[in-house]
Design a protein around this nucleic acid. Sequence first.
DNA 1: ATAGGGAAATTTTTT
DNA 2: ATTTCCCTAT
Length: 708
Amino acid sequence: MDDLLSSLNPAQQEAVKHYEGPALVVAGAGSGKTRTVVHRIAYLLRERRVYPGEILAVTFTNKAAGEMKERLAKMVGGPSKDLWVSTFHSASLRILRVYGEYVGLKSGFVVYDDDDQSALIKEILKELELEAKPGPFRAMLDRIKNQGRSLSEYLGEAPDFIGGVPKELAGDIYRRYQSGMRSQGAVDFNDLLLLSIQLFEEQPAVLAKIRQRARFIHVDEYQDTNPVQYKLTKLLAGENPNLLVVGDPDQSIYGFRNADINNILDFTKDYPGAKVFRLEENYRSTDAILKVANAVIEKNALRLEKVLRTVKTGGEAVRLYRAPNAREEAAFVAREVVKLAQYPETAVLYRTNAQSRLLEEHLRRAGVPVRLVGAVGFFERREIKDLLAYGRVAVNPLDGINLRRIVNTPPRGIGANTVAKLVEHAQKSGSSVLQALRQAESVISRPQQVQAFVEMLDSLIETAFESGPAQFFEQVMDAIGFREALKQELDGEERLQNIEELLRAARDWEEEEGGSLSDFLDSVALTAKAEEPQKGEALPEESVTLMTLHNAKGLEFPTVFLVGLEENLLPHRNSLNRLEDLEEERRLFYVGITRAQERLYVSYAEERETYGKREYSRPSRFLDDIPEDLLKEIGAFGDTSVPVLAYTRPEPKAKTVLSDFKGGERVKHPRFGQGTVVAALGGEVTVMFPGLGLKKLAVKFAGLEKMD
DNA sequence: ATAGGGAAATTTTTT
DNA sequence: ATTTCCCTAT
C-alpha cells in the first residue's frame, strides 16, 4: 500500500487519494498522468475496498486503453481482469450488443466506417439524381451527430445551400441516410454513442445496471470530449458522480472534430464541489524546452492556468534552421539525423501529411530507415476492405453497401447493369439487396452467375456461424480464388502479403481474445488505425519516426524536429480567421514542443510547393513566442555552438495580465448579457456571447462584470 | 469489363 | 504534384 504512494509526488498523491465525488486532474504534458490514474485505481481497490467490477476507465484510443490495462495488470494482478477499461466507442458498442434491441437495433448490426458512410451517401445522391459530392454531406452528418443535435436544429442555423443543394434537400439526404443505415442493420461511430444515450434515457433499468458497473468513472484526455461524450459521461456519472477526469486544456487539438475545450474548462461549474488537482511537475523535458513551451502556451487565453515545472535542469536552446525551400529543409533534417545517429530516439513532426513525402525521400536517400505513422491505415487498404466486406455480409446479410462491394469482386461477370437492375428491384419491392439476388431469375435474363454467387454466400454464412474469423477468411480466399485473382494484378504480390497479414491477425486474435467472426469485425471496426504491420526491411526500433503533430500526442522522444513552421502551415491557413482556431494551432505547436526530452529543432522553408504551385511564406508567428535567449539559429551544416542553459531555479513566470480578465471566465455585459472571455490582450478582451458570437471590447468602457 | 484520359480535390482525423 | 474519381472508348 505504501508503494502506491511513495513513488509519487505530492500532487499526484493527493489525486490518487481522492475518493468519492467529482475531481478534475489538470495534468500537464509529461506530468505522469496515466501513472496517476493507474495508481488511483489501484488505491481504490486496495485501500477503499472498491470492487474491480465497479470501476470504469474511458480513454480515446485503443492504444491508450491497452496500455492502461497492461499497467493495471502489473500493478494489481488478477483483479484487473474485472476492471472495465475501454474507449467511449467500444464501451458503447459492448452495451449495444446486449441492449441494442431496446433502441431498434437488429442483433447482427455492423459498424460502418467512413468509407461505408460515403458509399451510402453516394447511393442516396444517385437515388435523388443529384450531381453532388458526398463530402459536404458527410461533414453535415458529422456535425449534427458529433454535437448530438437534431436535424431541424441544425438546419435552422445552416446556410441555405449545403454541398450545392438547398438545405431542405440536404435534410432529406440526412433522413434517408439514417433510415438506410437502420434498414441495413448498420450504425456509424457516432450512432454508437448517441444510441447509448438514447438507451439510457429510455430505459432507466438498463442505466441503473450499467451505473453499478461504473460506480467509479475515469475519463482520460477529457479536453478532447465532444458534446456527446460529455453527455454520455454525465449520464453514467449520475446524481452522485464519482467521476475523475484527467486532461490538459493546453493539449486540446481536436476541435475540428467537435471536441469542446469548454468541457474541461467548465468542469468545476458543471460538477459543483469538484476537487481540482494540478500536476505541474514535468518529468520529460529539459528546463530549456519547458521554458519555451510555457512561453508559447502562455499566449493563449482559453486555458486553465498552469505552469510546468522542470525536474531535469539545464538543457540546450532550441535550434532554428531557416531553409530557402522545403527541399533544403528536408535535406537539413536528414543531415542532422544522420549526424546524431540516434534514429529510434528521433521524431520528425509536421502539420500536414503532405509534408511527409519530401522528408521521407531525403531521409531514405541518406540511408535512414523511416517509420511513417498513420499514413494509410492497414485496414483501409482495398484488398483488406474487400475481404472484410465478405465477413460483414456473412454476419449481416442486410448490409447492402458491403454486399455491393463484393458482388463483383473479384470480377465474376455481374456487371454494373445487372447490379443496378437488382438494386432497383430490391427498392421497389422493399426487400434487401440479398433477397433481390435470390430472386435474380425473375429480374434478369442471365441469372447463372448471380445464383452461383448467392450459393457461395450461403455457404459462407454457414461458416460464419460455425467457425472463427481465421477459418472464415480462409474459406473466402478459396471460394473466390482471390490468390489467383491478385496474382494477375500489377501490385498483386504486395496486396497478397497484406492479405496474409490479415489472416495472421485473425489467427492471433482468435488465440488472444477469442470469439466469433462478428466479434472480430467489431474489434477491427473500432481499431481502424491499428499499428501498421511492418513492411520491408526497417524495424521500427531502428527507424526515425515521422508523423503529424496530432499523431504525436502522448509520445515522447529525446530529439524532436518540428518542421514547416510557416504562416499558413502552422498556423494552418484555414485556422487564421477565428481566434479559437488559432489558439488550437498554438496548442498543436505546444504539443510538438513538449514531445521533446532533450533536443528540439524547429525549421521553416521560405519557399515550398503546395499543390504544385510555388508559394513563399513568412516564418510562423509562433516562433516569435520563443524567448530569444532560448532560440539559436544555426546554419546549413548545423552548429555546435548552441548555448546551454545554466541551471536556473524553475521559477514560475509572472503572467502578463494587463486586464483583469482571464480566458474562460464568465462575464456579464450590460447589453450583450452573459458570455465567456476568450482572450484578454492589453486593455482589450474578446468575449464569446452565445448567439451573438465574438465581440472585442475595451475593458475600460465595456462595463463588464465578473460572474462566478 | 476495363483501360485511359481528364477534371477536381487536396488540414488535422483518437473512434 | 499527385491522387482520386468519373466518364468514355474500346
